[in-house]
Simulated assay, not measured.
Amino acid sequence: MSPDLTYKTSAAISPKHASVDEAKSLEPRLSHAGDACTRQAKVESIADRWRRENAKAIASSNVWADQEGLPLERYRQF
């Protein structure tokens, strides 16, 4: 058996189609993805802090609603 002599060569292909150019312009950039992750982490951090700071008030409101019922419950249609 003779060895398999497969050679890889590269070919430069220049896209001439508008759809390929459009796709290139829409491809996500790594820096944008990093910025999005940073923004999401910041939003989650702010939301977590708000929940911690307001946990007592929310618990108090829930206890009141459990004891008294919802203020406009008689108008609910479900």
Rank of each mutant, 00 (worst) to 15 (best):
M1Y: 02
M1A: 11
M1F: 05
S2H: 09
P3C: 04
D4K: 03
D4V: 09
D4Y: 00
L5S: 08
L5Q: 11
Y7P: 00
Y7N: 01
K8F: 14
K8W: 12
K8E: 12
K8H: 11
K8L: 15
T9G: 00
T9C: 04
A11E: 02
A11W: 01
A12N: 08
A12S: 11
I13E: 01
I13L: 13
I13R: 02
P15D: 01
P15C: 09
P15N: 02
P15H: 03
K16D: 11
K16L: 15
K16Q: 14
H17G: 10
H17T: 14
A18V: 10
A18T: 04
S19H: 05
S19N: 05
V20Y: 07
D21C: 11
D21I: 12
D21P: 01
E22A: 01
E22C: 00
A23E: 06
K24A: 02
K24N: 06
S25M: 13
L26V: 06
L26A: 07
E27I: 11
E27S: 07
E27N: 04
P28T: 09
R29P: 00
R29N: 03
R29T: 09
L30S: 03
L30M: 05
L30F: 02
S31C: 08
S31E: 14
H32N: 08
H32S: 10
A33T: 14
A33K: 14
A33I: 15
A33V: 15
A33L: 15
G34I: 11
G34W: 05
G34E: 07
D35Q: 10
A36H: 07
A36D: 08
A36Y: 07
A36E: 10
A36M: 13
A36K: 12
A36T: 07
T38H: 06
T38Y: 06
R39P: 00
R39T: 13
Q40D: 11
Q40Y: 11
A41E: 02
K42V: 05
K42I: 07
K42D: 03
K42N: 04
V43R: 06
V43L: 10
V43W: 01
V43N: 01
V43E: 04
V43Y: 02
S45K: 12
S45W: 05
S45H: 08
S45T: 13
I46G: 00
I46H: 03
I46W: 05
A47N: 13
D48N: 08
D48R: 10
R49D: 15
W50N: 06
W50R: 10
R52T: 15
R52S: 14
R52H: 14
E53H: 06
E53T: 11
N54E: 05
A55E: 09
A55V: 04
K56F: 06
K56E: 13
A57S: 06
A57C: 01
I58Q: 00
S60F: 00
V63C: 00
V63W: 01
W64I: 06
W64M: 04
W64F: 02
W64T: 04
A65E: 08
D66Q: 14
D66C: 11
Q67D: 12
E68P: 00
E68W: 12
G69R: 08
L70Y: 06
P71K: 07
P71E: 03
P71C: 03
L72K: 02
L72A: 01
L72M: 04
E73Q: 15
E73V: 15
R74S: 07
R74M: 03
Y75E: 04
Y75F: 11
Y75C: 03
R76E: 07
R76G: 00
R76M: 08
R76F: 13
Q77H: 08
Q77W: 09
Q77L: 14
F78M: 06
